[in-house]
Design a protein around this nucleic acid. Structure first.
Lengths: 341, 341
DNA sequence: CAAATTTTGATTTACGTACATCAAATTTGA
DNA sequence: TCAAATTTGATGTACGTAAATCAAAATTTG
């Protein structure tokens, strides 16, 4: 049987009340006594029964999810997953509130974060906009003892407890290797479609992509980045234009959203050309395009995993427990036609 | 606040005891009263607090993991993950016992399963040997109300509640597409190194691999399968031999274990040849080979995820709860040099 | 050394559910 | 209609922990 507080009390030769004082860091225990209890805890290998403790405390975890008000399918998916987590709230003893902030607006994000500093929720998850003032605001929260995790997009040099998202530099390099190998050493131009170079994930993907192409596929040259603002219409126009003007394009890397426009452009302008296309984010559109051969590979991060992982980590941090690292690593999924879920 | 048994009692106009009788399917409740309570439960949206219930019951989940006594790194890894789960047992209220059975021995597996039928644990996870008598034994357990999940290797046509593993046909097809695309449409011979054609996962991987090569890469011809019995020495010998005798080999697909031998053979016989190699299972050896360019891609299933998923599913089944399907899908990881964990 | 202060012990209630017991009410059958 | 059988209610204890109260003991201070 698993040891209980009574066992600690017996082992340390003190009363239950004293054990409780030590366990819950209440005052009124002499240093020597405290140490005696702590030793007993270690020696008999006591671990608090979190379920019983939460029951006794009537504890719930008030968490806040801060998501950008972006109108693209990835963010919609992320929101849906957060809502799914909200639906599970009663069972998981969480109480999740979502806050929308304007995208790419550090000041607005800082305002929200500072406000939360006074509310003191049990944990905060945010899709970070990578700016120094945001980092400082997050660090203030962390130093005030509030667990904070970043989701999807990380925050350079901050004290956040955890990042639930993929390594975007690695993602870019992986895309580059797939594209390069699929092109089989042929010379040619590669077009890159991004949302905006102001977003850290997009910058990092491009950085990884460009560096690996330069290192290992010197026959390929990367054209100036097309910024489609994650907007299908704009992406369509810009890609169609590029394909018309440049007959030397043999590969395309789409590292952001707005793939609907890309796919349309490809179907209009490139049915006859044998282009190799690697895109990010699995959606109904990209899935169909992968199946019909318009896209050759899709890199994906699973928003559901990210949300669930963020919640698990926040809970663990709130309880001062450790997490299973391997379980919380968000993997970069590579989908070909054959391994779609 | 979340509704409790007291709220049901009040809503249904009955006593706590009656609610308890309905909730725990105890006898002595008139049909009409039972319905009244069930309606109230539905209407106020009551969900049992599993933590409190388990506390009251002093419940633990006695689970059994049946793993084959195979001496390869994948099974070692799987065992390590099961042991890690055992270490977490006190916290998770599980009580996991592992049973080793001889590999590829349906009769031995059936014996163990039948034995467990009398012990009636809360759940059973097994690495299935795909044979009709095993399927029947599993079906008997399921029909006796014991939750059963298969791990790593599934059981054709059985009633098992869940399979925590990858789709091996899809894995084979994915390997074929990677190999085919990496080879860039060139003609050539492809060698396949398997453990044994008696194992279902290996058969399925080969099946998927061969079918996609036939469909989409007619320039590639698959050589007779090399059965290395997942043994490094044997794999080394057979692969070295094949490479010496056949200069037309341009690609290798290793779908089982024993990759240490494969890698040694490649380094000895194929440094000058530009072979494309796709292998299964990420280990220290395959990882190093991927990094130094000996292997081009690794397909992997995460044993830790499989074990944790199996446990979550068994718990849910034991409690009659539903699982988050997306969370329990075991993904086929594709690792290139750039996205290694 | 007594008084003031700090530390410790003993005990109780609560969280939400499970389970058992016994009494009271209701229904059923003859 | 009455006894027997069935159904329902009332109540208490338990699970492991949290949190509070009050008394007793130990320590520190003057």
């Amino acid at each position: 049987m698993r040891p209980t507080v009574h066992d600690i009390a017996a082992a340390a030769g003190v009363s239950l009340a004293t054990v409780d004082r030590v366990l819950n860091q209440r005052p009124g225990v002499r240093h020597v006594t405290r140490e005696k209890v702590e030793t007993a805890i270690r020696e008999i290998g006591y671990v608090r029964d979190v379920a019983a403790a939460n029951l006794a405390k009537g504890r719930t975890y008030p968490f806040v999810f801060i998501v950008p008000a972006s109108d693209n399918s990835f963010m919609h998916g992320l929101n849906a997953e957060v809502q799914a987590a909200v639906a599970r709230s009663p069972v998981e003893r969480t109480h999740i509130r979502t806050v929308e902030v304007p995208a790419f607006d550090p000041a607005a994000l800082v305002d929200v974060l500072d406000q939360l500093g006074t509310e003191r929720p049990s944990g905060i998850a945010l899709v970070a906009t990578d700016a120094p003032e945001v980092r400082d605001a997050v660090d203030r929260l962390v130093q005030a003892g509030i667990p904070v995790v970043t989701v999807v997009s990380d925050l350079t040099g901050s004290l956040r407890h955890h990042y639930a998202g993929v390594d975007n530099i690695a993602a870019g390099r992986t895309a580059a290797r797939l594209l390069g190998r699929f092109l089989g050493g042929a010379r040619g131009d590669v077009a890159v479609l991004a949302g905006s170079m102001l977003v850290r994930d997009h910058r990092e993907r491009l950085e990884g992509f460009a560096s690996l192409i330069a290192e290992e596929f010197p026959g390929l040259s990367i054209l100036p980045v097309i910024e489609g603002r994650d907007d299908p219409e704009m992406a369509h126009m810009l890609v169609a234009d590029a394909l018309s003007k440049n007959a030397g394009i043999t590969g395309i890397y789409s590292l952001g959203a707005g793939n609907r426009g890309l796919i349309r452009a490809l179907k209009e302008k490139a049915v006859d050309r044998s282009l190799t296309v690697v895109a990010h984010e699995l959606t109904a559109h990209t899935r169909a395009a992968l199946l019909d051969g318009t896209i050759d590979a899709i890199l994906n991060q699973d928003a559901g995993h990210e949300v669930r992982s963020a919640i698990r980590v926040l809970k663990a941090k709130a309880d001062g427990l450790s997490v299973i690292d391997a379980q919380e690593r968000i993997r970069l999924d590579i989908f070909l036609k054959d391994n779609l879920p």
